[in-house]
């Protein structure tokens, strides 16, 4: 059995760890709450945009737009969002697994995949794996500003229109609810796939009271669709970064809460162990005194 001094040292170390993990939990909880509010507030906007796009693509007279369907390129691009810091449970590991799926699938179908990464942990992991990154996003913390999002989206739209890539996906941890998050890939380009994905998520999508043909359009459907498509790509990319940050913080809250609970449990065990050791030390001392008196 360890001596009382060693037990006290372990107790103090555990207490310090518990304070650190509790603080990290609190910090992440505040960030999570702030992001959760923005996420909840933005849902209506994404739903309305998805409804609008759905209405246009289901029109009797189809709209033809170069962003709508894949092109002949054999290159795919993925944006990977991870975290800058660790201690968030299995958050980054699930992202790594999804990247593996993409690289293996690309190899199997004879395609190339350009990986663009955000988050120091993911970048370091991919560098260690010897994966060549086509780009990194390091000029913003977690979520890009509106201007930065537009720059990112416009760069990929240009690549798509020039035939450099035929698909763009975002690998991110989707936030379903505080109890459920899952890594998935949202196909952002071509837009037909994005509309498909977003409309199945939108809360109210159908039935609509009116068809596309019932509306007066200003300007032409092609021009309207061009703007909607670009707006959808931009907002989806920003939405993915937002959900990824939200999932990271809730992951860290859960991981740190569990670490704090474990540390507290360990402190209880150590207190018992310390009392037992102290008691046996006192007993031994008493026995020594009694033994000496008898002699």
């Amino acid at each position: 059995m360890a001596g009382t001094k060693q037990i006290l040292q372990r107790f103090k170390a555990t207490e310090n760890i518990s304070k650190v993990t509790h603080t990290m939990e609190m910090v992440s909880a505040v960030k999570y709450r702030r992001l959760y509010n923005s996420w909840r507030e933005s849902i209506d906007f994404y739903d309305a945009l998805a409804q609008l796009a759905y209405m246009i693509v289901t029109a009797e007279k189809t709209v033809d737009h170069p962003l709508l369907y894949p092109n002949a390129s054999t290159n795919n691009a993925i944006i990977v969002t991870g975290s800058d810091r660790g201690l968030c449970g299995g958050y980054n590991n699930s992202v790594y697994r999804q990247i593996d799926v993409h690289t293996k699938m690309a190899k199997r179908f004879g395609r190339d995949v350009d990986i663009y990464a955000q988050g120091r942990k993911v970048i370091t992991h991919l560098n260690n794996q010897g994966v060549e990154l086509s780009g990194t996003f390091e000029d913003f913390d977690e979520i890009p500003s509106a201007k930065q999002t537009n720059e990112i989206a416009d760069a990929f739209i240009d690549q798509f229109l020039n035939g450099q890539i035929s698909r763009l996906g975002v690998v991110y941890t989707r936030f379903f609810s505080p109890a459920s998050q899952m890594v998935q890939t949202l196909t952002v380009l071509p837009v037909a796939d994005l509309i498909d994905d977003l409309t199945t998520r939108a809360t109210v999508i159908w039935p609509w009271e009116l068809n596309f043909e019932d509306f007066i359009l200003s300007p032409t459907p092609e021009k309207i669709f061009d703007t909607i498509a670009k707006m959808m790509v931009r907002t989806s990319i920003k939405g993915c970064f937002l959900e990824a940050a939200l999932s990271e913080h809730i992951g860290r809250v859960v991981a740190m809460r569990s670490a704090t609970d474990n540390a507290n449990e360990m402190m209880d065990d150590l207190t018992q162990e310390y009392n037992r050791a102290r008691q046996s030390q006192i007993t031994m001392e008493l026995l020594d005194i009694i033994g000496a008196t008898i002699k």
Partner: peptide, 19 residues
């Protein structure tokens, strides 16, 4: 502020999609 100038919307406006 529509793409081609200001437009006014009143009750019972015809269904419209406008940039």
């Amino acid at each position: 502020p529509s793409h081609d100038g200001m437009i006014g919307i009143l009750r019972n406006h015809a269904p419209m999609l406008c940039e």
